[in-house]
């Protein structure tokens, strides 16, 4: 508990997490407002339509998670931390817990906020959360944000440099997976098993909107996809913890 409260104090006594929270929420909810206000009856409103901007928040949260550890290496505070608390694995787990919970909260706020924008700009009975898939689309982003934060934090621990870690995480999540999908013949089959593909499948798939992937086309269902995504994130975290335990601080 001490370790967690220390990591919480450390995270919130600098400004960057506050900015990340504001930017993540602003971009996601702002995009939802823009998107739903322009629907104009051409397309039927749906819960999935309000959640199109989640990627914005997701990326910002991942940057925040990577920064939470790379700035510690950048300014040497990681050594002050290990000096005060020599159990490095416990320290990093505490940091992961704090960042993941924050990411979860941001994700939930962003998703419900976006859904609220739907009610403001395109009020329609279809926005009522009356199916399991609709609930998943609005509650789900928080879980994915938390998993993505763990993923980015692990990369941060391994790479230790802000520029390197942020670039890696963003290129992977935004570019690499979609490029792999373009490889002829095998691209699609590989893509289905990539971590963020699984995360997006969980967040938006299986709804009644034309933009979401139907359940019948999924290799595994939405919830197993989430478990798969989280398993990869925590696997990466385990590798990073072994590394941080072994190497010189």
């Amino acid at each position: 508990m001490t370790l967690i409260s220390v990591e919480r104090m450390k995270l919130f006594s600098t400004r960057s997490p506050w900015w990340c929270i504001v930017v993540a929420l602003g971009l996601t909810i702002g995009f939802a407002a823009l998107f739903t206000s322009q629907l104009g009856g051409e397309m039927p409103t749906s819960v999935a339509m309000t959640q199109q901007g989640n990627q914005f928040g997701l990326i910002v949260v991942m940057v925040m998670a990577a920064l939470a550890v790379t700035t510690e290496y950048r300014f040497g505070t990681i050594r002050a931390t290990f000096q005060a608390m020599p159990n490095r694995v416990a320290v990093m787990l505490a940091k992961t817990a704090v960042v993941a919970v924050l990411a979860l909260l941001i994700g939930e706020l962003a998703a419900f906020g976006s859904w609220g924008m739907g009610w403001v700009f395109a009020p329609d009975q279809s926005l009522v959360l009356d199916t399991a898939a609709e609930w998943r689309q609005v509650v789900g982003p928080g879980l994915v944000f938390a998993g993505a934060a763990v993923f980015a934090l692990a990369v941060g621990i391994l790479v230790r440099q802000t520029a390197g870690a942020v670039t890696l995480v963003m290129i992977w999540a935004l570019l690499a997976e979609s490029l792999i999908q373009l490889i002829p013949t095998i691209g699609d089959d590989i893509y289905e098993w990539l971590p963020f593909a699984a995360a997006f499948r969980f967040m938006s798939g299986g709804g009644d909107s034309p933009m979401s992937q139907p359940l019948s086309e999924m290799p595994i269902g939405p919830w197993p996809s989430l478990v798969y995504f989280l398993a990869i994130a925590f696997g990466l975290l385990a590798v990073s913890l072994v590394t941080v335990h072994k190497r010189d601080a």
Binding site: T2, L3, V6, M9, K10, S13, T77, A84, M85
Partner: peptide, 18 residues
């Protein structure tokens, strides 16, 4: 080994808590 945007007080506070 101090975060430049953290105050001296905040720095010592988290160390004390730990």
């Amino acid at each position: 080994w101090v975060h430049p945007n953290r105050s001296a007080y905040a720095h010592l506070k988290w160390m004390a808590r730990s």
